[in-house]
Write a protein that binds this DNA or RNA. Structure first.
Lengths: 125, 125
DNA sequence: CTGTATCCTATAAGATACTG
DNA sequence: CAGTATCTTATAGGATACAG
């Protein structure tokens, strides 16, 4: 089974990773934790715009995937820290490449969009 | 403007790139075209499971973003070829890093999931 | 502080039918 | 072949209220 392990086949590892990071929050959370462990609220503050619900969901599924550890300290008020596992730290590297690319090239993408939109305005109705 | 160009702020380049590749088809299409230009139908065949509608949409937005060129040959039947631009080829590199990571580590993620699920079964109701 | 539970909506994306 | 158009559903994600 899994006769064609190429990225275009549905069950290949790459497709699965894309499902994983495709939620667009994963990358940001892993990036935030790349600098060190953070507690729940801290992660939320770092990742601008994420709702508490989605933060909870994403953190849990990252823990499930073995990318994060969750450490709850039995104190009042509760203190829960999230940290990258070795696997998570490993993922942070290619993610960082993407980050660099974005910083270096997204402006160019912006320009391309503007140019495209200019060419395709006025037309239509 | 853009006082905090960090990946966690909403308007930063990284966020925009994530919106771009977060649709999960972008990565696959760019990956397919990394090996050379393809016509419309060919791309569809490479990217397993994509619908024609989504293929059309994604290709167009990639062209808009300056990552792909679209060349229509005025013949019957129509022949339209898509190819990476230099910018697109450039993006293909970090994407390929992700691909490598996935091939190397997704099995480990699978194992983590299984372990997590085993620990969290039986419990509940 | 760290969640859970519920409701609600916007949107991605599949299926299908049709066109130059 | 290479799309366009329309309908429909699944799901991500936001808002809000509540709990340990």
């Amino acid at each position: 089974m899994d006769p064609s392990p190429n990225p275009f086949n549905r069950d290949c590892p790459t497709r699965q990773l894309l499902d994983r990071i495709g939620d667009q929050w994963t990358v940001l959370i892993v990036g935030a934790l790349a600098e060190g462990p953070l507690r729940f609220t801290e992660v939320g503050k770092r990742v601008d715009g994420i709702s508490q619900k989605v933060l909870t969901q994403t953190l849990r599924s990252l823990v499930r995937d073995g990318l994060l550890t969750r450490t709850a300290y039995p104190v009042i008020p509760p203190r829960v820290e999230y940290a990258l596992t070795p696997l998570g730290r490993d993922l942070a590297e290619p993610l960082d490449m993407l980050d660099r690319w974005a910083r270096g090239h997204m402006a160019e993408v912006e320009r391309a969009r503007d140019a495209y939109d200019r060419e395709n305005t006025s037309v239509s109705a």
